[in-house]
Design a protein around this nucleic acid. Sequence first.
DNA 1: TCTGGGGTCCTAGGACCC
DNA 2: TCTGGGGTCCTAGGACCC
Length: 458
Amino acid sequence: MRSDPSILHVDLDAFFASVEQRDKPSLRGRPVVVGGTGMRGVVSTASYEARVYGARSAMSTAEARAICPAGTAFLSPRFEAYRKSSLVVMDLLRELSPLVEQVSIDEAYVDLRGADLEDLEVDTVRKRLERLDADIREATGGLTASAGAATSKMLAKIGSDLDKPNGITIVAPGEEESVLEPMSVRAISGVGPATAARLRTFGVETVGDLRRMTDTDLVSVFGERHGRSLFALARARDDRELTLSREAKSISNEETFERDVHERHVLHREIERIAESVGARAEKAGVFGRTVHLKVRLPDFTALTRSFTTTSPTRDADVIARTATRLLDGLDLPQGVRLLGVGLSGFVAHAQTGLFDLETSADDETEYPEVFAPSPQDEPAPGSDAIDLSTRFSPSPERRWRTGMDVHHPDHGNGWVWGSGRSRVTVRFEGPTTPPGPVHTFAVDDEALSPAEAPSWT
DNA sequence: TCTGGGGTCCTAGGACCC
DNA sequence: TCTGGGGTCCTAGGACCC
């Protein structure tokens, strides 16, 4: 841990609501709630006027409507406006020191060892933070921030929370443990509702209580990583450095429906729409992913996740959608679906070529004749008989093996097409459930492999 | 009228390899 | 004919953060 209060945490006050009040003078002094305004919306930010009535982040908007007075403004977020102000503030922080870790749109850590200060004494730091506060107000048209400076990230963050809104708290070196001791265990980063509840069963409510638990006990209850971290953080031992740059590890989009969805075809259409957005974001980010994720939340709020990893990285919306659809079709969903999500991870910078790359290659084009299979539109209606194999060789460019098609092989049974090119079609059998079935590659004109009957939906 | 959407990290078990 | 161990990858679920 550091010996000087050189880690700064800055947190913009009631950020979304404050931007709205800044931009619409009629909202100033009035309760403002920003968040989802639909029946299933939740509150992102409540202005301090709304907090008086108990409105809080993460509360359902319905509940906020019930407790806030008439005249409360309920607004949908305007992310573009927030991003703009965020950028202004982050630039001011980088002016203070180039060592900035942005945690979210309204929060960041700054390493003051990179700042141009004569020393890192409490008074010097305080003076500089007062100037920063004035700069933020001026540059953003009146937005305010709260700031904490300390010898570690944890104490800096706790400090920024101690005097909100618009306060500056510097935890002097040596004071860390006494500041921490009386606080709820929830003050420790990594302690959420579940950990707090388990700790309560041991009679632990405050950080002081937590200090009475041994290293061994914490590890046996919470696992190696979490247990050791709790033991150290309870003693204000926090050596975490700032993470100055980070590469995204996954891209995902999800949507909660206004009403639970029971129809498969609606879910399929939603998957296509969400996959489109995921693919576009991956393209913008310049990445290809090897693993496609599906997330489903049921009406009772339980979540199911399924994923599928291939050797061929993709960002093709169509491939993502077909894979996600396959994963969905492996799920029995009699209760309907509350939320649907699609994600991509396992990024590589470039789509690789190789054994499993099923994009058309020059070799394929010269060595193999074109053979076509029915496109999904040609698949039989639910309940009808299997497809007529004679259509496989119909010379229409659309009629080719498509990712996601159902197929049958006399030796391997039923499977689905993972990828296809002009020369080869790769099939995963008995997928996509766990454990994944075997993968086999066939020449496109292999008569043994045939399109199978499309699954029928209820 | 209960409970969003974007992420990260960890755990645990099985497969597989050495 | 008794029984290794470590490492990595994949999958599912869960906790947590803003």
